[in-house]
């Protein structure tokens, strides 16, 4: 087993622990699952998807979707689902790294009750230190890099764990295998 496969297996375990749905498959499977997901949602916002991918998703989901960068705050805030993109996953903490380049993308990934992180052949790092050491963390001016590890949560009330405070209550990671990045 390669390092990547081992890390991915660890990532999958951690996702289970955090209550993150992990969907893996080839383009067709992922497209089908995403389509049914989008159909369940009334309104979907895309944030930070590479153009080729957002075009594909637009084709799948028709007029239910909008690009965050072309929407205003109230439109963004009304989305039930946000689909975003990640190139890096972190095994030890079950995290996905999300980079947003505009305030709207950051808003979209923060406000929607449901967050879907789409990845194509992501690089899976062992832990945060490995990710940061790999030189893949983009900290250029204007960008926000967020390492998301599961649904938003609080334990402020009598230390009882409750999901979905300000950020998404449901987080899923869709990993498309075998495609060219």
């Amino acid at each position: 087993m390669s390092h990547q496969s081992l890390h991915f297996a660890e990532f999958a375990e951690k996702c289970k622990e955090l209550g993150v749905e992990l969907v893996t498959g080839k383009e067709k499977t992922i497209s089908q699952k995403l389509t049914s997901q989008v159909q369940r949602s009334e309104f979907v916002i895309f944030a930070g998807l590479p153009p080729a991918i957002s075009d594909r998703f637009f084709a799948l989901s028709g007029n239910k979707c909008r690009e965050a960068n072309k929407a205003n705050l109230s439109t963004i805030a009304s989305a039930q689902t946000c689909i975003t993109y990640s190139t890096d996953l972190i095994a030890g903490s079950g995290s996905a790294v999300i980079v947003t380049n505009t305030l709207e993308e950051r808003q979209a990934t923060s406000l929607a009750p449901e967050l879907i992180v789409f990845c194509r052949n992501p690089k899976v790092h062992h832990n945060v230190s490995d990710f940061l050491a790999a030189g893949r963390a983009r900290l250029s001016p204007g960008t926000t890099l967020t390492i998301v590890s599961g649904p938003s949560r609080t334990a402020d009330i009598e230390q009882i764990l409750i999901k979905g405070v300000h950020g998404p209550k449901i987080v899923s990671v869709y990993v498309e295998e075998g495609a060219e990045n």
Partner: peptide, 16 residues
């Protein structure tokens, strides 16, 4: 293992 959101903001942020 890690806090849910570890956010690195490199300002100034810009709107679309």
């Amino acid at each position: 293992s890690l806090t849910v959101y570890t956010t690195f903001t490199s300002p100034p942020q810009v709107a679309a």
